[in-house]
Design a protein around this nucleic acid. Sequence first.
DNA 1: CATTTTTTGTGCGTATTTTCACAGAAAAAA
DNA 2: TTTTTTCTGTGAAAATACGCACAAAAAATG
Lengths: 206, 206
Amino acid sequence: MITRTVPDIVVGRLPRYLQALEHMYREGIKTTSSQELGEAIGISAAQIRKDLSQFGEFGKQGTGYSVAFLVEQLQSILKLTRIWDLALVGMGDLGNALARYQGFAEHGFRITAAFDNDPEKIGKEVAGLIIQDSREMKRIIPSLGIKIAMLTVPASVAQMVAEELVDAGIRAILNYAPISLNLPDDIHVENIDPIIKLQHMTYYLD
Amino acid sequence: MITRTVPDIVVGRLPRYLQALEHMYREGIKTTSSQELGEAIGISAAQIRKDLSQFGEFGKQGTGYSVAFLVEQLQSILKLTRIWDLALVGMGDLGNALARYQGFAEHGFRITAAFDNDPEKIGKEVAGLIIQDSREMKRIIPSLGIKIAMLTVPASVAQMVAEELVDAGIRAILNYAPISLNLPDDIHVENIDPIIKLQHMTYYLD
DNA sequence: CATTTTTTGTGCGTATTTTCACAGAAAAAA
DNA sequence: TTTTTTCTGTGAAAATACGCACAAAAAATG
Ligand SMILES: NC(=O)c1ccc[n+]([C@@H]2O[C@H](COP(=O)([O-])OP(=O)(O)OC[C@H]3O[C@@H](n4cnc5c(N)ncnc54)[C@H](O)[C@@H]3O)[C@@H](O)[C@H]2O)c1
Ligand SMILES: NC(=O)c1ccc[n+]([C@@H]2O[C@H](COP(=O)([O-])OP(=O)(O)OC[C@H]3O[C@@H](n4cnc5c(N)ncnc54)[C@H](O)[C@@H]3O)[C@@H](O)[C@H]2O)c1
């Protein structure tokens, strides 16, 4: 049996399935179908079944899927059955909002270290975290085994700071700076940029 | 001449081209090529040329593209040659960070109205905006001609508030709540959700 | 117990998206 | 001027992604 590598576009949809399923779980819904799940998130039922079939058989004909079981399976596929430590770099307005956001902890992501290079900010506490000097990243990040960073520094320094993060052993970066980072191929970068999203939407407006 | 409708996936890449080109412009770079632009953002040169060819011929053989001219053209295609007014709904941590973010204004997006339903917050000022009662959305939004909203309320009320926004004449929503909104097909919704992005990345990590 | 209904997993055809590769235009070099 | 180099725009090919439609399994109904 050959283990075909799963397309990234499929992997990218799994968290959306998981989000909807966890919502159903909280609502007390025990069972769902590809049809119902698809309607909830605007994806065709066939697509969902095809995507899931990449990883195994999780449903029962005539019945559909057990919500709790499918949540478990998706968490396992996405490696969410452990706690992931995060580094947060750049404690300005956005960094502070992220530090206080409860959603990360609720989903097994723990912000374990916060960094800035502003002497005024270093040493201050935010949401139970002491802001540390970003010159210490290379020492602290490996010592805590952190593999994922959220980058909320100004665009002008984002590339440089990203390189420092990679140097410190970071393997994945969630980049909020409005610039595309140029990093080695084995570093996973995802971008969050509201301007890009707004510009996408204006195309369709008058 | 048939005006083939441009694939959404192509439209979605244009803001990224624009971002990189504006960066080049600020750096004083006058001319670029599909090759160079592609390397800057990690997209193949052929892809960029194909995408642009959907809208016209913007380059010169042997020379490439004038950065300033291509910026102008992309802005025009994406309808960015005007100011877009935005409504910001939900003035918690994230809403406040967004209200203070300068990037919107720098790109022609003006947050014109901010709403919340918390009596403690209504009337307060944030970044020059007076927070208004969200019960007034239906009156205020049309009166200011606002078509785009950023939604930063708790997930539990996001669907309801989104429907109120549509009712108030909003045509496009940038949704930060971790839930998929169910709205009429002609409303453009884009989601920003860091958890979804992190869960995508963990798949590739050990 | 037989029949009908529901719903999965998937083979296969279709549609969409990406890449290739090259003619031709402009610029640079000879 | 002629030749060489550079780089676009685009058909055609290749690769990827999507969706239909159905056998098979389970549950519900009669
Ligand atoms: N605020 C928002 O809502 C928002 C929204 C979208 C994107 N962004 C982007 O996110 C980033 C941060 O935005 P912000 O509004 O919080 O900006 P900000 O200026 O408030 O914060 C940036 C922080 O980064 C720190 N910093 C600067 N250089 C550093 C370095 N070399 N190492 C470590 N820390 C450093 C600064 O001291 C500051 O605390 C920017 O790139 C911005 O474009 C912000
Ligand atoms: N804070 C973050 O960094 C962050 C990151 C990602 C996503 N989010 C999401 O963004 C949303 C807001 O996050 P937050 O941390 O700012 O939460 P928050 O609780 O600080 O703010 C929510 C705000 O919405 C207001 N609100 C509640 N019901 C409302 C209604 N019916 N009409 C108008 N306003 C209403 C509240 O009064 C509050 O001011 C949440 O859905 C959250 O999951 C937040």
